[in-house]
Amino acid sequence: MSELTSAAVPPAGPGDHRRGDGPELIVYADLGCPHCASAWVEICGREATIVFRHFPVASKHPRSPALHAAAEAAGSQGRFFEMVDSLYRDRGHVDDPHLWQRAERLDLDLDRFEFDRRSGAVATRVRRDFESGIRAGVTGTPAVFSLGVPEVDHP
């Protein structure tokens, strides 16, 4: 079990999901969270490189682990942000058949998507982000860090 004592937000690295140009904004977000869905549009409208970090709060949003795993599995086929955008745009369709439909619309290899989203590697990857958020003191989503400093703790 990992140590969860305080630690600064890890700087963006090659293992992170990044999109855009400009100064980096590190965003800890929950794909099952309505606040994140509304903030996502605003965040993506900024002239910044968005660094997405997984912060699923499963007790509050029981489907979040599945949604984060689906985004990560889409990411292994190069469509991470497309899946994130899709999940935030339509929060009403998040059961497995809906995830398959989304994967199809993104032209993903479905068998591979199914395998990946249930894999231990994907769960470990999601948990790694979550734990870095806990260590940085994230207590609500979305939590946005600019230059390592919390920008908006909670809207």
Binding site: M1, S2, L4, V57, A58, S59, K60, F130, I134, V138, T139, G140, H154
Partner: peptide, 19 residues
């Protein structure tokens, strides 16, 4: 809303606290 976030986040690391 704030309390909900606090206890939800603590719940996610409850196994580590109990460990």
């Amino acid at each position: 809303p704030v309390c909900s976030d606090q206890l939800s986040v603590y719940q996610e690391v409850k196994p580590e606290i109990e460990a």
